[in-house]
């Protein structure tokens, strides 16, 4: 009697147990979880990051049988770095070497682009076993922007010209500039010798809107953004050359490159393929033409025949 009852209990629960075991296995079907042949691409919450993530995804799909998944909307370069370090992601769609030099390696010795590039590549390899690929071909940098009208009213052309109006100005910035060392607000005040009335850290995607709708007097934007064109914003020349250009590259975990050897040549195909003008155009299509980054990326790859033959 007892054994019969136990058998029935087992019979009842066995399918359930089996279900849990299969489902909680390495990867949940349909979601591209954590299985070995899934490439996990980290992307931050900017348009540019999401376009590049979709481009990488499209390239991997075109050239291999690997699965891909995008870990999207990460808030900063620190988060995507941590994700890679903790092996929650295999690569980050875009890393800027100048940012990594300061925020990850915590160095502020120089602003020389060459020194930054070699140091970051070397230290990422040595310390974190991550490979910094060659630049996509575009660099990004911080840039002060105002509306044409405001520029005319106050006769602004360079950042130094802001000195007079600065104490009354409201300035929109991204969420990390305040805390950056060598090129952050603190260093900026020292270099240019003035500070702004109010600075408002916000989601970088929102600063352009805020400027165009006159909620801000000036913003510190990214030079690659598509909205500079659509709002016809006035870029102020960094006359003290305070902000260095930051080369953009994909950075992958060595572990992932070893596990899936097809990956390295695929990523290498993008070397130098996306010059600044191209990136601005792609950003513009997403930011102004109601197209998803994935839609824009797929069209771009098709138009360029997935960079077939263009391997260096």
């Amino acid at each position: 009697m007892m054994t019969k009852r136990m058998k029935r209990v087992i019979k009842l629960f066995l399918p359930l147990v089996a279900l849990v075991v299969t489902l909680s296995g390495c990867s949940l079907p349909g979601l591209g979880g954590t299985s070995d042949d899934t490439v996990r691409i980290a992307a931050q919450n900017t348009t540019e990051q999401q376009i590049m993530a979709a481009i990488i995804q499209g390239m991997i799909k075109h050239y291999s049988n690997l699965d891909t998944t995008v870990i999207n909307n990460l808030g900063s370069a620190t988060v995507s770095f941590q994700a890679q370090k903790n092996d929650e992601a295999d690569l980050t769609a875009i890393r800027f070497n100048g940012t990594d030099y300061q925020t990850i390696l915590k160095k502020s010795a120089t602003k020389d682009p060459k020194v930054i590039a070699t140091t970051v590549k070397r230290d990422f390899q040595k310390k974190y076993h991550m490979t910094y690929f060659p630049s996509y071909g575009f660099a990004d940098t911080y840039q002060f922007m105002v509306t044409q009208k405001y520029a005319k009213e106050h006769n602004l052309n360079t950042v130094s010209d802001l000195k007079k109006t600065a104490p009354q100005m409201q300035v929109g910035i991204d969420q990390i500039w305040m805390n950056r060392k060598a090129d952050g607000y603190g260093a900026f005040q020292k270099a240019y010798g003035f500070s702004f009335g109010h600075v408002y850290p916000m989601q970088i995607g929102l600063v352009y809107n805020a400027l165009a709708s006159n909620k801000m007097d000036a913003i510190l934007g990214y030079s690659t953004d598509g909205r500079i064109g659509s709002y016809n914003l006035k870029l102020l020349k960094d006359d003290k050359q305070f902000f260095p250009p930051y080369q953009a590259s994909v950075v992958a975990n060595d572990k992932a490159l070893k596990r899936n050897p097809q990956l390295r040549p695929i990523l290498k195909r993008l070397d130098g393929k996306i010059p600044l003008k191209t990136m601005q155009r792609l950003n513009y299509q997403v930011d102004n033409n109601l197209q998803e980054p994935a839609t824009v990326a797929n069209k771009f790859l098709k138009d360029n025949n997935y960079f077939e033959g263009g391997q260096n």
């Binding site: 808030g75 900063s76 620190t78 988060v79 941590q82 969420q175 990390i176």
Partner: peptide, 8 residues
């Protein structure tokens, strides 16, 4: 919470 998520 959001700042924490953004800055890890």
């Amino acid at each position: 919470i959001f700042n924490g998520l953004n800055l890890y």
